[in-house]
């Protein structure tokens, strides 16, 4: 399996890359459109801010490539948020591939933000290699609205889509590469979807 990991030059692609390498996957860190077209799977990782990431996508000329892919694409954390229509973070339009918006998580007593740590999943639909009750690692201050595309959710003040799927697109709000065995199962399921 040949996996292209999009390196926007704005964040943490290192741990995503080793997450796949641990599974014996042949990965390529790239920002070259030709690599994305040639790969069997594309991964859009990302930490950092939505505005800067979208700027980089446009500056590198990747918007049309990413929106036009018909092979499996996995967005991780910020990479998942970019698949939606818009984000409150930097108040920007995103790739618009999945209906819905990304909103700020509101802190409260007993509810710190960012949502940081291991949260329990509720799995609504099989197919992502995860089971209800699995704990996976989150680190984010913004989250997409829950909706019909949620395959698995977690709770942090509100219901947070932890995994979304629409057609060839999968998004993970959590960090599979840092989620122990459950995360590895999820990555394996993506490689075989």
């Amino acid at each position: 399996m040949n996996v292209a990991i999009v390196d926007l030059g704005c964040g943490n692609v290192g741990s995503v890359a080793v997450g796949f390498e641990r599974l014996g996957t042949d990965i390529r860190l790239t920002r070259d459109p030709a690599d994305l077209l040639a790969a069997e799977r594309v991964v859009l990782p990302g930490v950092g801010a939505a505005g800067f990431a979208m700027e980089r996508i446009d500056a590198l000329g990747l918007r049309d490539i990413l929106t036009g892919l018909d092979k499996p694409l996995l967005g991780i954390c910020l990479g998942m948020q970019l698949l939606f229509e818009a984000s409150e973070e930097d108040d920007i339009a995103c790739l618009g591939l999945i209906p819905g918006k990304v909103r700020r998580l509101e802190p409260g007593p007993g509810l710190p933000v960012p949502h940081m740590g291991w949260s329990r999943l509720d799995v609504r639909e099989d197919g992502a290699g995860l089971r209800s009750g699995d704990y996976v690692y989150f680190a984010h201050g913004f989250a997409a609205d829950d909706g019909p595309y949620s395959l698995a959710t977690a709770q942090h003040g509100r219901t947070i889509p932890a995994v979304v799927r629409k057609g060839n697109l999968t998004g993970a709000q959590f960090h599979p590469e840092r989620s122990g065995k459950a995360g590895a199962h999820f990555l394996r399921a993506f490689l075989s979807c």
Partner: peptide, 29 residues
């Protein structure tokens, strides 16, 4: 970063954006 599949933080003497970027690039969360 290569060996473990749980999150980790790195601390100690980080003075610049470049040093932080190098830590994250090396696999720190």
């Amino acid at each position: 970063g290569r060996e473990i599949d749980i999150p980790f933080a790195v601390a100690g003497g980080l003075r610049s954006r470049e040093q932080a970027a190098a830590c994250l690039e090396a696999g720190a969360d």
